[in-house]
Amino acid sequence: MSKSTTAVDGATQTEIRPRYEGSNICTWIGFKHVNYMVEEAVYDHLRQLGLPAGKLYERHGLGVDITDIDTKIRTAFHIDDLATATVTPAADKGDGRRFTVEMTVEREGETVKAVTSKVAVQFRLDPHGHPAEEPPAELAGHVTDRLGAGAEPIRVEPGTDPADLLTAGKNAFAWTWRIPYFYCHFTERMQMSGYLRQMEEVVDLFLEDRGVSIKTLLDEQDWIPVVPHSKITILDEANMEETLYTVFTVENVFKRFTYTARMDTYVLRDGVLVPTATGRITHGWAVIENRRDWSLVDFDDRLVNGLNGKAGKITARGTA
C-alpha cells in the first residue's frame, strides 16, 4: 500500500494491490483476496486516524476484529492492478465501528468502480492478565468483552452426528475441521480472514462432492466459478483447536445464471452447537476466452443437477 490520504469528512484513501496468492486461474483475483484488500483498506484507515491495530493491542489490550463484511465485486481485479480504496465512516449500530469501502481501478484510461463493501469492526478486550492502558477516548462505547451478535444454539442428543443433524432434509453439505493457530489472531480466536478461507474451501469441497469440481469444469469446458457477492457475519467466538462444523446450503438457482448459498459455522461445546458465523455467497460461471478475458455462461444440466443434488459430508480434509 502507498499514498494514504485523509479527507475532511473522515474518509481516507489508500492505494493497494492484490496479493499474488489470489491469482489462481489466469491472472484474475478471487473473491477471498478481494475481501483481503477491503480488510487492509479498513486497517489502514484506522492507522491513519491514529488507531493502528498493533498499538491498540500492545498498549491498550484491544484486538481489532472485523466482524461483518459484505462485498460486491463489479469489475474483476487482475494481479498487477493498482486499486484506490476509499474508506468512509458509516452510522454505527451499537456493535462497533462501521465503514463503507469503495475501490476503483483504471481500465483503458478510465476510472472504473470495482468493489463496494460494508464492514463492521469491534474492539475486543484481551482476556489475558497482562497490564494495559485504558482504551482511547474515541473508542468509548465501542469496546466489547466478546465478539459477535449472538445466535440461538442447537442441542445435540447423545449419539447424534452433528454434521448429520445440520444437513438433515436440506440441500446442504457439511465439513468438519480443526481450527489451526494460523487461522487465528490475538492469541486464540479465529479471525474474519479465516472465515473467508473457510467459505472458499467449503465451496470447493461441495462442488467436488456433487461431481462438478472446479478442475472438472476447467478441464472439460474451460469454465471457472465467479463470485459477484459475498457476506460473512461473526456471531460468536471460535477458538484455536476447536472443531468447526461448516455447513454449506444451496438456497436458490436463478435462471441457470447464478446460484446463492449460505455458509453457517458451529462449534460443539457441552453438547450444544454454538453458531459462530453465518454468510452468503453468490456464484456464476464463466468461460475463459483468452488469458485475460472471460464471459458469463448459462449453467448446463450437469451443473444444475449437481447444485440441486443430495447432501454429503467430508470430515477433516486438511486445511485451506
Rank of each mutant, 00 (worst) to 15 (best):
D80N: 14
H78I: 10
M103G: 10
I79D: 14
R47W: 09
L56Q: 06
L51Y: 04
A83Y: 12
L46G: 10
Y43D: 12
G96I: 02
R98W: 02
H45G: 00
F77H: 14
T104L: 09
L82H: 03
H78W: 09
T84K: 15
V101S: 05
F99Y: 15
R47A: 05
A83R: 02
K55Q: 15
L56N: 06
R59A: 15
Y43N: 13
A91E: 00
L62Q: 07
D44Y: 00
D80I: 07
V105W: 08
P52S: 10
D95I: 03
P89W: 05
A83Q: 03
D68P: 02
D95E: 12
A91I: 00
G94Y: 04
D80L: 11
L46K: 06
D92E: 13
V64C: 08
L46T: 04
R59I: 13
I73N: 11
D81I: 04
A85F: 03
V42G: 04
D81V: 06
H78A: 09
R74N: 11
D95Q: 09
K72V: 10
A90R: 04
I79W: 13
P52E: 07
G54N: 11
K55R: 14
E58R: 15
G94I: 05
A83K: 02
A76Q: 14
Y57I: 03
V42R: 02
A90I: 03
R98Y: 02
T71I: 07
L82D: 07
R47F: 03
R47S: 05
Y43S: 09
I69M: 15
F99L: 13
P52V: 02
M103C: 15
K72N: 08
F99D: 05
T100K: 01
H78M: 13
D81E: 05
T84G: 12
G61Y: 03
D68C: 09
L46I: 06
D44K: 12
T104V: 13
R59W: 13
D95N: 10
I69D: 12
F99S: 06
G50L: 01
T88K: 09
D80W: 11
G94Q: 09
V101N: 08
L51R: 01
D92S: 10
H45I: 01
R74P: 02
I69K: 11
D65W: 07
V101G: 07
D95G: 01
Y43R: 14
A90D: 12
T67A: 01
D95F: 03
G61Q: 01
L46W: 10
L49T: 04
D68A: 13
I79F: 14
P89M: 12
E106K: 08
P89K: 08
V105R: 13
H78D: 11
R74Y: 12
P89S: 13
K72Q: 12
T71H: 01
A85G: 05
R74I: 07
G63F: 03
D65Q: 08
T86H: 09
D95A: 11
D44P: 01
E106A: 12
T88C: 03
D70A: 00
D44Q: 14
T84P: 10
I73A: 12
